[in-house]
């Protein structure tokens, strides 16, 4: 679906039928789960009756959701959009970019954030993300994403084998440094692929954004807003050393 939301009809769309059915399932599962909760009898010292049960509210919500889903299905079937052959093709057609963007963010959060120094992780994330979308060179995009998702896989594999090093150890610093190195190599390779001036200019913009943003955010959050970063490895520890050196000088 590449059209804007303005193409929306006022009578729903075929995909509503499927979401309606999915909602029915969700509501049924929710109600089924709620029936397992203590419905009567005393729990945790609280005198229990139907109206005190932890199941009361989930059951109300599930019932409403069920009725709403039925309404949605009935409206969709009645409106006749299903008969309209041409509209059947629309709906949520799989588009590469959507999966890609969601994938980049998910890989960053699941693979990098818990295991790599936040600044290092941020640099690689922004580099891959901007190279993929800002440079407009399919080969560069492929390379950047390949390196990024590849690194994610390696990190997850290491985690699966229980090889993620404890934070603030030499082993953790080596992992951080390796990730940074992979990011640097990716950039150098991307640069070698591009020849025209516009692409090179955009490439430089990507690098600037990817290097400056995580570093600035890291410094602001860690030292100004006193919000600890998710993982404080190589770069954060280096920043700390500089910070204490400066503070110690005064």
């Amino acid at each position: 679906m590449t059209t804007s939301p303005s193409s929306a009809t006022t009578r729903g769309r075929p995909s509503d039928l499927w979401t309606g059915l999915a909602l029915l399932l969700i509501a049924a599962a929710m109600a089924g789960g709620a029936l397992q909760f203590p419905l009567r009898g005393t729990y945790a010292g609280v005198k229990n009756a139907w109206y005190v049960s932890p199941a009361l509210f989930p059951l109300i919500v599930a019932t409403c959701l069920f009725l709403l889903a039925v309404t949605l299905i009935v409206t969709t079937v009645r409106s006749g959009v299903l008969a309209d052959r041409s509209s059947l093709a629309s709906g949520l057609a799989g588009e590469g970019d959507v999966v890609l963007i969601a994938g980049i963010i998910a890989a960053f959060v699941v693979g990098f954030v818990p295991r790599v120094d936040f600044v290092v992780a941020g640099v690689f994330f922004l580099l891959a993300f901007t190279l993929a979308f800002h440079v407009h060179e399919p080969r560069v995009a492929k390379l950047a994403l390949g390196a990024f998702f590849g690194t994610t896989l390696v990190l997850l594999l290491m985690a699966g084998l229980g090889l993620t090093p404890v934070v603030r150890t030499a082993a953790a610093a080596i992992v951080d440094a390796t990730v940074l190195l992979v990011a640097a190599v990716t950039f150098v390779a991307a640069r070698a692929m591009t020849t025209d001036a516009t692409a090179r200019h955009r490439l430089r913009q990507c690098l600037a954004v990817a290097l400056a943003t995580p570093l600035l955010l890291g410094i602001i959050f860690k030292f100004l807003l006193l919000v600890p970063l998710p993982r404080e490895g190589l770069v954060v520890v280096a920043l700390e050393t500089v910070y204490y050196a400066i503070r110690g000088a005064f």
Binding site: A170, A177, A184, G233, L234, V237
Partner: peptide, 18 residues
């Protein structure tokens, strides 16, 4: 390579901090 120098410096700093 600038990247490598930065890297080496970073590792050195991290080890000092450790």
């Amino acid at each position: 390579m600038r990247a490598k120098t930065t890297l080496a410096l970073g590792i050195a700093a991290a080890l000092t901090a450790t």
